[in-house]
Simulated scan of single mutants.
Amino acid sequence: MLTAADIESFEKAIGYTFKDKALITQAFTHSSFVNEQKINKKSDYERLEFLGDAVLEMISSAFLFRKYPQKKEGELSKIRASLVCEPALAFASEKLNIKKYMQLGKGEEATGGRNKESIIADMMEAVIGALFLDGGIEESKRFIDTYVLTNVESMQMFSDSKSILQEIAQGQNLGAVRYEICGESGPEHDKIFDVRVFVGDKNLGEGSGKTKKAAEQKAAYEALLVLKKKNNVFKEH
């Protein structure tokens, strides 16, 4: 159950206080939670997610339009898609610990809903929708700029991080890329996998996810950030 203290904690994290607390509560409320309520039923996040998705598309499109004046429509669309895809939004949400605030039904909770990228990404968009209604376009834009568009060059690689890492390792003769499971946690129906990625003999990144592939993608992305910081070896991407 989302408490007043939870809402205050989230408001402090994003630097905005909601005038209408019902909006941010709705943004964190899953339909499974609503369906289990016998009385005083509240709205779930889906309408806010619909609105937030549109706001996110508009803000990110305008940002990319200004940032890349020479790029064609197809190129801009591809970059935007990589920035607002489910894995990228779920990854961006980790800074805010969105999972902590979710109101889920018992069944959804039991089947691992708190770690589903689809729900996490939808709730990020619902928060954007809530901010738009409560604080206007400037507040929703500030949130998007801070948590989604912070590093476009890096984030656009997120959706294809494994293949990009493989390409760079081969092109720069950095050694073979291999992934190693270093831990598992949670019940059988809701496992979280921890993975390390090695390039040559160096451990360059770690990631966690509900599937091995998702964990490997996050580990590869962390490795790409390390390589970029050290050598700027993928400035052509």
Rank of each mutant, 00 (worst) to 15 (best):
115 N>L: 03
159 S>D: 09
80 R>T: 01
148 V>W: 10
235 K>Y: 02
2 L>G: 06
107 G>E: 14
84 V>K: 05
60 S>L: 08
65 F>D: 15
185 S>E: 09
129 G>Q: 08
83 L>I: 07
93 S>E: 01
38 K>W: 09
133 L>I: 12
211 T>L: 04
223 A>V: 13
21 K>I: 07
167 E>H: 15
165 L>Q: 03
142 R>C: 05
99 K>S: 05
216 E>W: 01
92 A>G: 01
79 I>V: 15
91 F>C: 05
152 V>N: 09
170 Q>W: 11
206 E>S: 14
231 N>G: 11
90 A>T: 13
35 N>D: 10
121 A>M: 09
66 R>T: 15
164 I>W: 05
146 T>P: 00
96 L>M: 08
103 Q>H: 03
207 G>A: 08
145 D>L: 08
15 G>F: 07
160 D>C: 11
153 E>N: 13
161 S>R: 11
26 Q>K: 11
179 Y>W: 12
213 K>N: 08
227 L>Y: 12
84 V>C: 05
75 E>G: 12
234 F>L: 12
126 A>G: 01
42 K>D: 14
103 Q>S: 10
29 T>I: 10
183 G>W: 06
22 A>Q: 13
171 G>R: 13
211 T>R: 05
200 G>E: 08
174 L>G: 02
93 S>I: 00
31 S>N: 03
77 S>M: 05
77 S>P: 04
26 Q>H: 06
110 A>E: 15
69 P>E: 00
68 Y>M: 14
9 S>G: 05
231 N>P: 04
6 D>F: 12
114 R>C: 00
205 G>A: 10
2 L>T: 07
221 Y>S: 04
152 V>R: 11
212 K>H: 02
54 A>I: 07
235 K>G: 14
69 P>Y: 04
63 F>T: 15
145 D>A: 07
36 E>W: 12
213 K>Y: 00
65 F>C: 09
15 G>A: 05
79 I>W: 03
194 D>W: 04
32 S>R: 03
221 Y>K: 07
178 R>K: 14
207 G>E: 04
13 A>H: 12
171 G>N: 15
130 A>D: 05
236 E>Y: 11
34 V>F: 13
27 A>I: 11
176 A>Q: 13
169 A>S: 14
228 K>C: 04
37 Q>R: 11
210 K>W: 01
37 Q>T: 02
114 R>L: 07
3 T>K: 08
219 A>E: 03
143 F>Q: 06
105 G>Q: 06
119 I>F: 06
129 G>R: 07
93 S>N: 01
48 L>M: 02
102 M>V: 01
158 F>K: 02
42 K>N: 12
149 L>Y: 05
114 R>E: 09
128 I>T: 07
47 R>N: 02
84 V>R: 09
35 N>W: 06
215 A>C: 12
36 E>L: 10
212 K>D: 01
179 Y>S: 05
102 M>P: 00
120 I>D: 11
223 A>E: 01
102 M>D: 01
192 I>P: 02
71 K>C: 08
163 S>L: 04
220 A>P: 01
67 K>D: 06
34 V>E: 10
186 G>N: 12
15 G>C: 08
153 E>R: 13
90 A>S: 13
17 T>F: 12
191 K>N: 11
1 M>E: 06
8 E>N: 14
144 I>D: 07
119 I>E: 00
182 C>V: 15
43 S>V: 03
65 F>M: 12
175 G>C: 03
